[in-house]
Amino acid sequence: MVDFARVQKELQECNRDFEVSGIRVVPNGEANLAHLLGTIPGPLGTPYEGGTFKIDITLPDGYPFEPPKMRFATKVWHPNISSQSGAICLDILKDQWSPALTLKTALLSVQALLSAPEPDDPQDAVVAQQYLRDYQTFVGTARYWTEAFAMISSLGVEEKVQKLVEMGFPEALVRSTLESVGGDENLALEKLCST
């Protein structure tokens, strides 16, 4: 069984210094802490700057003795991340995992991966080829993908609430749902529809 006591502590710990790290982990779905949603800000000085990337986290039964399964839920253009599935190629999520690592440290490593791609050990061969042969185009595509998929839409929170309320959802529920998914309009809508 997953050590939920530890996961609970990890979440508290992580969200406490959200201001500093910009990294957040929230439960994804009801009550079950085995499915989580992490968000990381795109590192400054990279084509990912300004984006907020969502990462789908599944904890295996053996967590923390087995590594958590992480996958990008936001589309991202990066040599070590599949542009199709969001699968991440990162050693600490595989054989280099240590039980002493936490979700927060793992997400920090993912964030570090965004600023330091390793095209020689690619997850996505197409992206890696482009990175090595035509770096300028790579930066352009990565930037474009960030703007298209990872920017919280330019609308302010009030406008989003407004929009969702107009669709017929009660305002209080809209607000709490938006909060829980980190302000993403589409995710909030999805969640509202599924409840």
Partner: peptide, 8 residues
């Protein structure tokens, strides 16, 4: 002591 794995 605090164990860094289970955080207990």
């Amino acid at each position: 002591l605090m164990c860094n794995i289970c955080m207990d």
